[in-house]
Write a protein that binds this DNA or RNA. Structure first.
Length: 425
RNA sequence: GGAGAAGUAGCGAAGUGGUCGUAACGCGCCGCACUCGAAAUGCGGUUGUCCGCAAGGGCACGUGGGUUCGAAUCCCACCUUCUCCGCCA
């Protein structure tokens, strides 16, 4: 959410920033509602001041035994009018709040202006796409051959876009979660969090998933609980409505969670395999920083996520997202894209974003410098990394001509009982 | 699910219809004094937010309603926490 005063004073910038993100900001309606609110507010405040003054007089009159009936009668009318106006103002303020909640964050300087994927800027590459002396298979075919992931039965039991992991498939998934968490906690200095997988509507609003994107989330019928689309939601909201001392910053959390996404509007895309599931596992990195540190912290967060792919020996590239691809809440974003041989392309496996104070303002997350006023923190997060897509990447990049899959060395300590370093031999 | 208790500033806590939330008091924090320095001590300061060019004013005692000329204080509903009982992985 943007600051009310900031929007009022920078209408053109807000409109432009939204346009560059490919969204529309209804500035005219904002201005109309904002002005109406202020008009009503000064009027009702005058009435309230009168009520306060007169109430004091009533007290004094009663004390000295005077008759206050006339003033009380007058105040009855004033009070009724105040009640009417208060309710009108409440309606106006709700509308204003709803407008503010739908204004997208403003991109940071240095973010390339562009409309779509084509305008993103690759900033660095790691590794080489592997060469095969056989026709490489897609991960779902490899998995079927090894009998380690069962999509068909998941369709029977739950529905499309779900999977059963089985045997070494399940082991591989669990090994990756532990490998990633250990790396971030032991070597990168993050504190491990295991969050709730359901959150209340307020938390979804705090991080920006609501109110605009409700159709992308799963909601538990008859409740205000939502299945989390990412651990970002519970972990960022961990410090909602808090004021922390400056020394507490930066806070760095690493959280495993299952993630649930309705994938509305993705019908027909990535229908096979692990790339786009309704439920997937992810290790998420979340940071709270002082405003002046968020830029550097985004770089280190991205580097931390990259380290996962480096150690697994997976070829990838880092892409700086253009304004049109930033999404609603981000001010700057890098995507890590891993090489998938079956797609003959790089595909997103992590998304690292700086949200500046956008989420902090929505969620009321602040800090106080010594002797200063409370300021909003900056929040950042990034996948460190998506586990299902990592499984896909390992299966495809490490597949062998005989249908087996070599396990990357970094993962072997997490797969006790594996004979000969290959799944399927 | 049943019974009970509680939600006030960064934290603890007082305040039960009208000099008052610039919220007593304590802790913490900031400044000053004392000190070679620190501790201890003393003095002073320290909520947020909104409207307004300003002067000034409004709002907020978990949330939302209600009663009243006037509510932290009375009434209703809801949320959260705690204690006991029941159930339970």
């Amino acid at each position: 959410m943007l600051d009310l005063k900031f929007v009022r004073e920078n209408l053109e910038m807000v409109r432009e920033a939204a346009a560059r993100k490919g969204e529309e900001a209804d500035i005219n309606r904002f201005t109309a509602v904002d002005e109406q609110r202020r008009r009503l507010l000064s009027e009702v405040e005058r009435l309230k001041n009168r009520r306060n003054v007169v109430s004091e007089q009533v007290a004094a009159m009663k004390k000295s035994g005077e008759d206050a009936t006339a003033v009380i009668e007058e105040m009855r009318a004033v009070s009724a009018r105040i009640k009417e106006m208060d309710s009108e103002i409440r309606g106006i303020e709700e509308e204003l709040q709803n407008i503010l909640l739908t204004l997208p964050n403003i991109p940071l300087p240095g973010v390339p202006v562009g409309q779509n994927e084509a305008d993103n800027v690759p900033v660095r590459f790691f590794g080489e796409p592997p060469r095969f002396d056989f026709e490489p298979k897609a991960h779902w075919d490899i998995a079927a051959g090894l009998d380690i992931i069962d999509f068909e039965r998941a369709g029977k039991v739950t529905g499309a876009r779900f999977a059963f992991y089985k045997g070494w498939g399940a082991r591989l998934e669990r090994a990756l979660i532990n490998f990633m968490l250990d790396l971030h906690v032991n070597e990168h200095g993050y504190t491990e969090i295991f969050p709730p997988f359901l959150v209340h509507r307020n938390s979804m609003t705090g991080t920006g998933q609501l109110p605009k994107f409700e159709e992308d989330a799963f909601r538990v019928a008859g409740t205000e609980y939502f299945l989390i689309p990412t651990a970002e939601v519970p972990v960022t909201n961990l410090h909602r409505e808090e004021i922390m001392p400056e020394e507490a910053l930066p806070l760095r959390y690493a959280a495993y969670s299952a993630c649930f996404r309705a994938e509305a509007g993705a019908h027909g895309r990535d229908t096979r395999g692990l790339i786009r599931q309704h439920q997937f596992n992810k290790v998420e990195l979340v940071k709270f920083t002082r405003p002046e540190d968020s830029d550097a912290e985004l770089e280190s967060l991205t580097a931390n996520a990259e380290e996962v792919l480096k150690r697994l020996g997976l070829p990838y590239r880092v892409v700086l997202m253009c304004t049109g691809e930033l999404g609603f809440a981000a001010a700057k974003k890098y995507d890590l894209e891993v090489w998938l041989p079956a797609f003959n392309a790089y595909r997103e496996i992590s998304s690292c974003s700086n949200f500046s104070d956008f989420q902090a303002r929505r969620a009321g997350i602040r800090f106080r410098r010594k002797g200063g006023r409370a300021e909003f923190v900056h929040t950042l997060n990034g996948s460190g990394v998506a586990v299902g897509r990592t499984v896909a990447a390992i299966l495809e990049n490490y597949q062998q001509g005989d249908g087996t899959v070599l396990v990357p060395p970094a993962l072997r300590p997490y797969l006790s009982g594996l004979r000969g370093n290959y799944i399927g031999r």
